[in-house]
Amino acid sequence: MKKSSNHIDKDNVVVTIRDLYKSFGENHVLRGVDLDIYQGETLVVLGRSGTGKSVLIKIMAGLLKQDTGMMKVLGQEVDKLSVKELDALRLKIGFSFQHSALYDSMTVGENLAFPLQRHNKTLSAAEVNKAVQQVLEAVGLAKAIHQLPAELSGGQRKRIGIARTLIMQPAIMLYDEPTAGLDPITSMDINNLINKVQEQYHTTSVVITHDLTCAKVVGDRIAILLEGQFAHIGAFETVVENTTDPQVQSFYDYNFID
């Protein structure tokens, strides 16, 4: 089930995080985060709810600004970019939201075509349709094109959310809790889809989760966020299964795995 790690280019760092701090009032969420993410790898950020995992990827996508520290994505410091530069960077980033965030008033096809049509005004309707069909086939939901998001199941919505980001062929995929609220079988389908996307589109992926099965199946490296910092970074077997840290141990014990 687990993919190989030969696709990782360790000489090419796509995301650099240095001494990153972020607080919301008195709640100090990130307290000096340091991390490098390599081209082609899938990094899983594990941590309990409210530890700032989602905040981290929102800073990566420029949805939030850090208080201090550096967040460099594809060689550009995100908080120092102009609106135009940030938009250009965002076109290279795919963000799959926890609740999919599909546009309720649009059909699946329109949801997928929306970003494509806006950024490629020269594309004909036939070309847009072809691209939509391609990504829908990639996520295994070709027949859902005319359905509204409200008519889809949770797992299908996640797939369409991923498809919507894939249509722009991003270099980096950010997944916010991709298996949250899904049954184990649908969760496994989503895990396999994340691996498939990584292989087919050669993306670098950051997966935010507290689902250890997901972490084990998709992660090349696991980064464990404890008290606002990455306490452990490494392979799943090292930092989770054979950990001596009691906090990680208890996290592991409460998850059903294998």
Binding site: L63, R90, F95, F97, A101, L102, Y103, D104, F114, R118
Partner: peptide, 16 residues
């Protein structure tokens, strides 16, 4: 409802 279901953020990250 678009705000609370992150549809507005989804637009932002699609550079719209």
């Amino acid at each position: 409802s678009m705000r609370v279901t992150e549809q507005i953020e989804a637009m932002e990250v699609s550079a719209v």
